[in-house]
Design a protein around this nucleic acid. Structure first.
Length: 694
DNA sequence: ATATTGATAAACACAT
DNA sequence: TATGTGTTTATCAATA
């Protein structure tokens, strides 16, 4: 059994999903061109009597174009959705975006581009290639558009002729409508691309040569500026002096020219700087006001940082803030160029906002979906393709382990980092699962809060996603969740399988890990009684951090002399006290209430503080006495055992009526709903219940 | 570059 | 003997 899991664990190596490129778009464009020439032929025959024929041809051409459009849209969608299942392992995101970008010369959506930029995975050369491809495509699209314009004109001519002739077939109307619709789509698409291109330019990613007229920009003139933009623009301009005209009067012409000039300087800044965009956004609003305000806050200016001017596409080095101001006033004064850049920035912002809105929506849908799903009997693991750690704390994750049946060792990214981030399950936050063993930072050692787990519990129960917690954290959680704060090994196993779908396979692996952790971590204390042994946790020790202590003295062993043991390891008694090893239900209740009040469990306070410590020991003694009364057969009859231990069997094994319902203070809210199939594994379940302890 | 830390695998001992 | 439990060590990978 070990072997099987062993090999499985090691075989996970390199399952790197490579987003394979889509179809070759250029080819499709080629066919488009053919379609176009076909379409043009009939155009020449306008005067021909065979209107039906011309219409047919037009329809064919339309169809081809529509298909093309559809394909493009689909591809865009596909590509934008590509990131989700990606698994990165050793192969950072780098390869994926690059390959995608290189293999599919289609127009890249702004979202994609942004992602690529953010990941900073493309070399300047690669970016150039990409951009060139995009330009080429845009050119083709423009041609396509021209073609349709022509067609439309023809159609209108035909219609006119027909009207004169007194005929107006329905088909023609339909065709005309379709054409219009299509053209609108085309325009929209182009507009999007323009914006994208503009943003690239703004970031200095695209350099348009003088000889290469702002071809892609031209269509922008056709796209209307959204009203919000106009409003924004008005604000910007009005903030200046009255001399300026309103934004509405700025034709795309200036924009074009300015963009060209502004893009020139920044070949160097091929990688988008996250800060830059932030600054850019700020600058969008009222530059003037900001320049005023910066005087109040001398050294903080959104356009100035790290000794560099953050004006889009500028990056001029300014020794100090004063020189920056000079530079700002001289180089970025209110002129056509600056206004145009401002405009571009507005578009960029708008685009980002759009994207943000979309992503928010997506996130919402994902979360909703997951919620719904959790209620379903069996969760399909796949749904959460959350794979990219992008973030949901939930967020994204990576390829779900499900997809890697043989990679038990590869943890998935945390759905929700325990201590940080939203506790929502964000798909983005999940890291890719790869064979990589993720090491959870110390913060993951922080006790898992009920809320943290509770929020994602359903998710983990159903999705085979590896929880982002260490074994130690989980074991602790399992123990603390139990009514008695103690569990047998088997019960711990069961807790794992019950709470996490991920631990329903490769049992040998994770069970071994649990055992190792129990042994290795100082915070886990093994206690024996005549019914067997169980584990408790010393929360103090747990919180203390590094649990592992190689070569540490053997843990408490029932067969050894307790006093001697304590003498050797004074902390042991502490551990025992703090852990529930010897705690009576009363003490447990005390701790429970502390926990409820967010007081660290088994706090050192109770140990360190003489008063509390005394109280604890007093309670213990009392309980011991009580134990002896109730359980005479127990007690110290066993020589090697300490009195404390003797107490154990009495209450320790008392099994709650329903393990699921008798929850400790730390128990997860949801624990109550567990399936009963697990958890009845104690051999001593039939043990009499001692409820009189309270 | 090094030290820590966590996960795993494996060897071993012991008990049932 | 087979299995479960527990301990220990080694190795690998991720991180600090």
């Amino acid at each position: 059994m070990m072997q099987e899991s062993g090999t499985e664990a090691k075989s996970n190596g390199s399952a790197i999903q490579n987003g394979s490129g889509g179809s070759n778009h250029l080819l499709e464009c080629g066919s488009l061109r053919e379609g176009r020439s076909n379409g043009e032929t009939p155009a020449v025959d306008i005067g021909a009597a065979d209107l039906a024929h011309a219409q047919q041809q037009q329809q064919q051409a339309l169809q081809v174009a529509r298909q093309l459009l559809l394909q493009q849209q689909q591809q865009q969608q596909q590509v934008s959705g590509l990131k989700s299942p990606k698994r990165n392992d050793k192969q950072p995101a780098l390869q994926v975006p690059v390959s995608v970008a290189m293999m599919t010369p289609q127009v890249i959506t702004p979202q994609q581009m942004q992602q690529i930029l953010q990941q900073q995975v493309l070399s300047p050369q690669q970016l150039q290639v990409l951009l060139q491809q995009q330009q080429a495509l845009m050119l083709q699209q423009q041609q396509l558009q021209e073609f349709y314009k022509k067609q439309q004109e023809q159609l209108q001519l035909q219609l006119l002729q027909q009207q004169h002739a007194g005929k107006q077939p329905k088909e023609q109307q339909q065709v005309a409508t379709q054409q219009l619709a299509f053209q609108q789509q085309l325009l929209q698409m182009q507009q999007l691309q323009q914006q994208h291109l503009l943003s690239l330019q703004r970031q200095g990613l695209l350099t348009i040569q003088p000889g290469q007229p702002a071809l892609p920009l031209q269509p922008l003139a056709q796209g209307m500026i959204p009203t919000e933009l106009q409003q924004l623009w008005k604000e910007v301009t009005s903030a200046h002096t009255a001399e300026e005209t309103t934004g509405n009067n700025h034709s795309s012409l200036d924009l074009t020219t300015t963009c060209v000039s502004s893009s020139a300087p920044s070949k160097t800044s091929l990688i988008m700087n996250p800060h830059a965009s932030t600054n850019g956004q700020l600058s969008v609003h009222t530059p003037k006001r900001e320049s005023l305000s910066h005087e109040e806050h001398p050294h903080s200016h959104p356009l100035y940082g790290h000794g560099v001017c953050k004006w889009p596409g500028c990056e001029a080095v300014c020794e100090d803030f004063q020189s920056f101001l000079k530079h700002l006033n001289s180089e970025h004064a209110l002129d056509d160029r600056s206004t145009a850049q401002c405009r571009v920035q507005m578009q960029v912002v708008q685009q980002l906002e759009l994207q943000l809105a979309k992503d928010k929506e997506r996130l919402q849908a994902m979360m909703t979906h997951l919620h719904v799903k959790s209620t379903e009997p069996k969760a399909a693991p796949q749904p959460l393709n959350l794979v990219s750690s992008v973030t949901l704390s939930k967020s994204a994750s990576e390829a779900s382990p499900q997809s890697l049946p043989h990679t038990p060792t590869t943890p998935t990214a945390p759905l929700t980092p325990v201590t940080q981030g939203p506790s929502v399950i964000t798909t983005t936050s999940m890291h890719t699962v790869g064979p990589i063993r993720r090491r959870y930072s110390d913060k993951y050692n922080v006790p898992i809060s009920s809320a943290d787990i509770a929020q994602n519990q359903e998710f983990y129960k159903n999705a085979e996603v590896r929880p982002p917690f260490t074994y130690a954290s989980l074991i602790r959680q399992a123990i603390l969740e139990s009514p008695e704060k103690q569990l047998t090994l088997n019960e711990i196993y069961n807790w794992f399988t019950r709470m996490f779908a991920y631990f329903r396979r490769n049992a040998a692996t994770w069970k071994g890990a649990i055992r190792t952790n129990l042994s290795l971590h100082k915070c886990f204390i093994r206690v024996e009684d005549e019914f067997g042994s169980f584990w408790t946790v010393d929360d103090e020790e747990f919180k203390r951090g590094r649990h592992i202590q190689r070569g540490r003295p053997r843990k408490y062993c029932p067969d050894e002399n307790f006093d001697e043991l304590v003498a050797h390891n004074p902390s042991l008694i502490k551990n025992m006290q703090s852990s529930h090893a010897y705690c009576t239900p009363l003490n447990a209740a005390l701790q429970a209430s502390m926990a409820e009040n967010s007081i660290p469990l088994y706090t050192t306070a109770s140990m360190g503080n003489p008063t509390l410590g005394n109280l604890a020991s007093a309670i213990r003694e009392e309980l011991n006495g009580a134990m002896e009364h109730t359980n005479s057969n127990e007690s110290d009859s066993s020589p090697g055992r300490s009195p404390m231990q003797a107490v154990h069997p009495v209450h320790v094994k008392e099994e709650p009526l329903d393990p699921e319902e008798a929850e400790g203070p730390l128990s997860l809210v949801t624990t109550a709903n567990h399936s009963p199939d697990f958890d009845h594994d104690r051999d001593y379940e039939d043990e009499p219940v001692n409820e009189d302890m309270e």
